[in-house]
Design a protein around this nucleic acid. Sequence first.
DNA 1: TCAGTATTCTTGAGCACTCAAGGAGGTAGC
DNA 2: GCTACCTCCTTGAGTGCTCAAGAATACTGA
Lengths: 152, 152
Amino acid sequence: MSDALDVSLRLVKAQTALVRRFDSRLGALFGVSLADFLVLLHLGRAEGGRMRRVDLAGALGLTASGVTRGLAPLERIGLVVREADARDARVAYAALTDAGRERLADALKAAEQVAADVFAAPEWAGADVEQLSGLLTRLGGTGLPEDHGTGA
Amino acid sequence: MSDALDVSLRLVKAQTALVRRFDSRLGALFGVSLADFLVLLHLGRAEGGRMRRVDLAGALGLTASGVTRGLAPLERIGLVVREADARDARVAYAALTDAGRERLADALKAAEQVAADVFAAPEWAGADVEQLSGLLTRLGGTGLPEDHGTGA
DNA sequence: TCAGTATTCTTGAGCACTCAAGGAGGTAGC
DNA sequence: GCTACCTCCTTGAGTGCTCAAGAATACTGA
């Protein structure tokens, strides 16, 4: 097996373990999944604490459908509200509520802690983390929605 | 946000894109998902081309339940068969059929190609890939089948 | 020997996503 | 101001996993 394939499969597996770790901690403490947390994080960083659902989908790497379904429980528990656009009745914004902002702040602390734990082991030097970050950034755009994988 | 959290989230996103790319290519060409391919790959590398389902779960990073469900379609299309253990009636092996072995060989070629495409861009030197591999291995990316010297 | 416990696997219910289809609203050309 | 098309979002059906519960089998120690 080539190094390229080997590293691809390793990455897939490492992510599974990582997601479980985040889900477990965030779920236990704050009742949100990693996916929920990422929604809150993106909204929290957006202008006015809100985003069009289609833009959120792009930012999260999901389909619009996935956003609709993922947002529903967050709206139900009051972390996010739906807002209309005055000029274009097609678009619906997802906006952080005050409760959502609080939950985000708490979850962010917990997520930082999990990440710190993951990279805390003696074999992880700060330089390693930066190196990994750089390498992953190059992979970041790979195969996003606009890429139709025409291959060949 | 800390580097550790940043890199964790980057990894999660990179994986999503990577999985889509593999799924799309493998699905179009051979009618198997990346998850299916990984099952075949692990079985192909195992002693006798077969594994206990519980061991397969461990190797894949899934639950036993996930293996039962994932194996069902592969058994239905004849790539894998169920085999009993003579000494322990609890265990059921998943074993590669000849058709499964062929499909694995084909899918492996396609997967190599996808991985080569991903890491083909000019910014990826061989040393970078090895570095990334090393870093990911520390993250718990173990469980890949061992491979010796087939080179590339 | 046999009661209690552990292991392996399957199943039912549920969750989070996908794709395909469709409704509703906006836009451009004539 | 109509027609055709495009965009944004939701919904129905399906997939692939999870957890919890349970059946069958094996192991252990009094």
